[in-house]
Design a protein around this nucleic acid. Structure first.
Lengths: 245, 245
DNA sequence: GCGACACATGGCACTGAGTTCCCTTTCGTG
DNA sequence: CACGAAAGGGAACTCAGTGCCATGTGTCGC
């Protein structure tokens, strides 16, 4: 699909970040960047539509990945779990280059222009999630409202975990942070799961195997009452997917 | 505190919107605006730090109102209700000038730069709400996470209602739309209120009521195998939450 | 009445981002 | 070898935003 690697793009990103880190974003002009990279000024704007874009070089690809992932999401998945998994795609991109992500985080934290640009990027992720949920909730009363709220909550939770990881300079466990935050959201919006029983890790559910079902397409699940809902779902899914249909 | 009315500011806003509406935002230069307003170019940037700011002339004041409102919010209020009321302050500002709000809505919908700018404005509202909730939730486990998620949900709900009103050209009842949306959020995040009375058209699961459970804390669920997982969960939670503990 | 001072405004001139147009190089492919 | 399509380079332009200074215009103290 995409060409493996345009070397010029990477050279521009490298040159840009070198200058951004040593003299700051606003103190660096595009001419400085192209001079260091040894290319023409016009070429910069061929690869990046704006100066801000060079700070977020792979968000475009990641957004495409997410829409593709959500496009493949059929009715067999829980919508909320699906958008949580979609959010994890973004985390994965950040986690692939921890040092780069931490440097960028420090940049965006102090440069208002970059913060604003990041908002527009995050907004596009949120819209992708919301559009998916709107499709899944179509027809239901308050479907679009639920979709918008859940998408916003998922993004907020993801960012909360992500920022916590970035503040630790990439030392903490990014997946654990985000999983924890997303579990909170999933618990909140997958109704019936109490919001209070926080972080119990013991999986106290026992799914009855498919063989134990009485009729051919009936499954019986036995669970302790206090169990966190996502654990139940996890167990149930694990049991069910052994016989997908 | 603030001077009642600088006439020059209003003249600039009026001139700007006249031109924006008749030839578009990007086709209008700052020189065009100041020429129509009959003032010097330098004065424009005295009143508005950027060209985008002229589109959102009163958000700064509204944001100050919100932070003041939240600063006055003592412990006697429910935090979630408080931030919902804070969000209503923003709606009130929009509702004060319906035609202006609708025109601006149409502008921001088609100009990406204005959309991005609006995001940065909304972000500041969201941060104000989140900071307030973080204070209220301080000490609680996952306090900042809950604060961020609720703030995002409130903003999303508010915007959902607001946009619905704006799309109706200001014909519908703005307060009713936003109240409905915020009530949904408040129901979701205020413990004890259920989110469940939600449509569920054909639930092909039958949960055994808690009374039918053999032991005191075991629940038995019987479900058709082909049922989508999220429907099962929905039914399960509906059954479970009838006895929250 | 008169200088002093603050303040609002206007008028440049400058930086820097982003674009338009055009030229050169390079690399296939017939 | 010819030729055409990309890929890159580069001058010149538009426009947003800033700095600096000149010019009113009011008010206060004397």
């Amino acid at each position: 699909m995409t060409v493996p690697k345009p070397p010029m793009r990477d050279a521009l990103v490298a040159a840009a970040f070198q200058l951004f880190l040593e003299r700051g974003y606003e103190q660096t002009t595009v001419d400085d960047i192209v001079a260091l990279a040894g290319v023409g000024r016009r070429s910069f704007f061929r690869y990046f539509p704006s100066k801000e874009d060079v700070v977020f070089p792979d968000h475009e690809r990641c957004l495409a990945d997410m829409t593709g992932f959500l496009g493949r999401g059929g009715d067999e998945h829980d919508p909320v779990a699906r958008v949580c998994d979609a959010a994890r795609l973004v985390l994965r991109m950040y986690a692939e280059n921890p040092t780069f992500s931490v440097q960028r985080y420090r940049l965006t934290k102090k440069v208002p222009g970059l913060r604003t640009y990041e908002l527009s990027v995050v907004w596009r992720y949120e819209r992708a999630l919301a559009e998916y949920l709107r499709r899944r909730f179509a027809g239901r009363p308050d479907g679009t409202l639920r979709a918008d709220v859940i998408a916003a909550a998922v993004v907020a939770a993801h960012n909360n975990g992500l920022r916590s990881w970035l503040r630790s300079d990439g030392e903490s466990d990014a997946s654990a942070e985000v999983d924890h935050a997303l579990a909170h959201v999933q618990r909140t919006f997958t109704p019936g799961t109490s919001d209070t029983s926080d972080t119990s890790d013991t999986p106290d559910t026992r799914g009855a195997g498919p063989g134990e079902a009485a009729a051919e397409d009936v499954v019986v699940l036995v669970s302790r009452r206090g169990a966190p809902m996502w654990r139940v779902v996890q167990e149930l899914e694990a049991t069910l997917e052994r016989r997908p249909d």
